[in-house]
Computed example of a mutant assay.
Amino acid sequence: MTKLWQKGYHLNEQVERFEAAQNSLLDARLIRHDVWGSLAHTAMLAKIGVLTESEHKALKDALCSILQLEATHEFTITLADEDVHTRVENYLVAVAGAAGKKIHMARSRNDQVLVDLRLYAKEQLHSVAAKLCHLCTTLLSLASRHTNTPMPGYTHMQRAMLSSVGLWAASFGEALLDDEQLLSAAYVLNDQSPLGSAAGYGVPIPIDRQYCADLLGFSRVQNNVIYVQNSRGKIEAAIVQALAQIMLDLSKLAQDILLFSTTEYGFFQVPQELCTGSSIMPQKRNLGVMELVRARTQTMLALQQQILGIVSGLPSGYNMDYQETKRPFIEALDVVQESLEVCTLVVSAL
Rank of each mutant, 00 (worst) to 15 (best):
T155F: 07
M320W: 09
Y91F: 04
A71P: 04
I205G: 03
L69P: 05
S171F: 14
I207H: 02
I77Q: 07
A71F: 02
T78K: 13
T78N: 12
F75C: 10
H73G: 04
S231C: 06
F218G: 00
E180Q: 13
I207L: 03
F18S: 08
Y201N: 08
Y120W: 09
I103M: 06
G200L: 03
L39K: 11
Y9M: 11
F329N: 01
Y91Q: 10
S348I: 13
A98Q: 09
A62N: 01
C212Q: 05
E16S: 11
L333C: 07
T344A: 12
G217S: 02
K7A: 12
G317C: 03
L140P: 03
M105T: 15
D334V: 10
A80C: 08
I66E: 03
A237E: 06
Q283L: 00
V15W: 15
L195I: 04
R32E: 02
Y154W: 15
L274V: 12
E123R: 03
L292P: 12
L39T: 13
H10G: 07
T263F: 06
A199D: 13
N148I: 01
L140F: 13
R109N: 03
G309I: 07
A40Q: 01
D83F: 01
S279P: 02
K252C: 04
H85I: 02
A143E: 06
A302P: 00
Q14S: 06
K101S: 06
V342S: 15
V50H: 10
E174L: 02
R294M: 11
M1N: 10
L215E: 00
A332F: 00
I226L: 13
F329D: 00
L248G: 09
F18Q: 11
